[in-house]
């Protein structure tokens, strides 16, 4: 699937994250840090509550990129977890991934400019996605 021209805004995708998702992710990824499951421990180490794995958020970015590009090869992916995504005991946290197609670089790889937000706050700093499209 060819990507649209540079400058084109991609359809933002909103995902929901529940506590049950974090438990499933802990098993699949091996990251059993209790701050992603246990409210008491999360509060005890000074966090605002149970927070999503940063890598869960980055995995959602990976899904959005896959959807937008028809599964193009990803050459670089990353970001800084600047604001924790707090996941309530009931209901879900929402993360929205928005993107714009960038100019291909010298190797013909296409960067996607990303904005990843939850509850109006930017949760991923200096996000980077580079694809072979």
């Amino acid at each position: 699937m060819a990507l649209p021209a540079a400058g084109t805004a991609l359809e933002p995708v909103t995902f929901e994250i529940t506590r049950a998702d974090l438990v499933a992710y802990a098993h699949a990824s091996g990251d059993h840090n209790p701050i992603h499951q246990d409210e008491e421990i999360a509060l005890a180490v000074g966090l605002p509550g149970v927070i999503a794995h940063g890598m869960y958020t980055l995995a959602l970015v990976g899904r959005a990129v896959g959807d937008w590009t028809g599964g193009a090869e990803v050459v670089e992916l990353g970001g800084k977890f600047v604001v924790p995504v707090v996941v309530p005991a009931d209901g879900a946290a929402r993360v929205t991934v928005a993107g714009t197609v960038g100019e291909p670089n010298a190797d013909g790889l296409v960067p996607l400019a990303l904005e990843v937000t939850s509850d109006g706050a930017k949760v991923l700093g200096a996000p980077k996605a580079l694809v072979r499209a």
């Binding site: 421990i41 890598m55 990803v74 990353g78 700093g125």
Partner: peptide, 17 residues
């Protein structure tokens, strides 16, 4: 201790899928 660790930043550079 893992519970005192928060992931600050993660980046992947793939040489092949």
């Amino acid at each position: 201790e893992l519970s005192r660790i928060v992931h600050g930043d993660q980046r992947f550079r793939y040489h092949r899928p």
